[in-house]
């Protein structure tokens, strides 16, 4: 997926979109690429994850070959007006930005086109090998990537309309653009991921590049260990253990049992994700990223990016 030029990282809220986006960025840099990371919702999560100061609309190189920016509709409008309409003075008219905001909120696709347009513009300029977008959550991404087409249908004429054509050419080219759907192994997250893949297929011509399952608990026992674990839970084994060691290990068995149950639950949800994807005939990269919560602390982005490097190499 890192061979594409524009990746939208999306998923249900709370699945770790920003972490995955930042980690993909680092993994791409490790492959020798010049990377631009873009945060869509100005929540500041990306700058925290990258351990850098607040980001702005103008990209800033935060480490060699890794630049980052945050999206802002007002700035995108200003840039759009000055680049494409070649009338910079228009943007300076007081009140225009707010009236534009108002209209853009109501009319389908206008805001999204500005935002998506900025991203496509960065792709077209070619200052970066890949633009990785920490995109909006599941509910909005379809509207976002389909925006140029939506707007064309809604406003048949006008300069903004003309601009949408080259954007669509980038967005609908699977060599260039892809959506990466991040999910965790929870029921709701999996459902949303499947709904999103289906919506992308039916409502847009934008390719789904990959499905990434985040926070997958690791396997606990091998098959033969599993049998021994079950045996150890039997009364006779437990009492022999207690007699010989002077202490029960009931709590340890319980703790391990809980971790094992969580793992089995995750496996179950991953299986339904896979079969759901198969039903949709969705052929994408499918990656599992480990859950690090059972491990001592450290930089999550560093751990995930090395995991991704290994997976993607």
């Amino acid at each position: 997926m890192l061979d594409r030029q524009l990746l939208f990282i999306t998923g249900k809220g709370g699945v770790g979109k920003s972490t995955v986006a930042a980690s993909l960025g680092r993994a791409a840099v490790a492959q020798g690429k010049r990377v631009l990371l873009c945060e869509m919702d100005a929540k500041g999560a990306l700058s925290t994850l990258l351990q850098t100061s607040e980001l702005s609309f103008t990209p800033r190189e935060i480490s060699p070959n890794l630049s980052a920016m945050t999206m802002n509709t007002q700035d995108a409008l200003r840039e759009y007006v000055s680049i494409f309409l070649k009338t910079p003075f228009v943007a300076a008219i007081p009140g225009l930005a707010s009236i534009f905001d108002f209209v853009a909120d109501a009319a389908p696709g206008v805001k999204e086109v500005l935002v998506v347009g900025k991203l496509c513009y960065e792709v077209r300029k070619g200052n970066y090998d890949i633009v990785i977008v920490d995109a909006e959550s599941t509910g909005h991404i379809v509207a976002q990537v389909a925006a140029p087409t939506t707007l064309r249908n809604f406003v048949p004429l006008g300069p903004l309309n003309e601009q949408t054509l080259w954007m669509t050419a980038i967005l609908e080219d699977p060599q260039k653009t892809g959506v990466v759907v991040v999910t965790t192994c929870q029921e709701m997250a999996v459902n949303e991921a499947l709904e999103l893949v289906e919506a992308l297929q039916t409502k847009t011509k934008v390719d789904t590049a990959a499905i990434i399952v985040n926070r997958v608990p690791s396997e606990i026992f091998t098959k033969s260990q599993e049998i021994v674990f079950t045996q150890l839970n039997q009364v006779a084994a437990k009492s022999l253990f207690t007699k010989k060691s002077g202490s029960s290990i009931d709590l340890s068995l319980q703790a391990t049992g809980l971790a094992r149950a969580r793992r089995n639950l995750a496996t179950h949800h991953i299986a339904s994700l896979r079969s759901g994807l198969a039903e949709l005939d969705s052929i994408n990269e499918f990656l599992l990223l480990p859950d690090f919560s059972y491990q001592p602390t450290g930089s999550l982005v560093a751990k995930l990016s090395s995991e991704l490097e290994a997976e993607l190499s």
């Binding site: 228009v90 534009f100 004429l157």
Partner: peptide, 10 residues
């Protein structure tokens, strides 16, 4: 201005 920016009539 809005017509120039957005397209006529929007």
């Amino acid at each position: 201005i809005a017509d120039r920016l957005l397209g006529k009539g929007l």
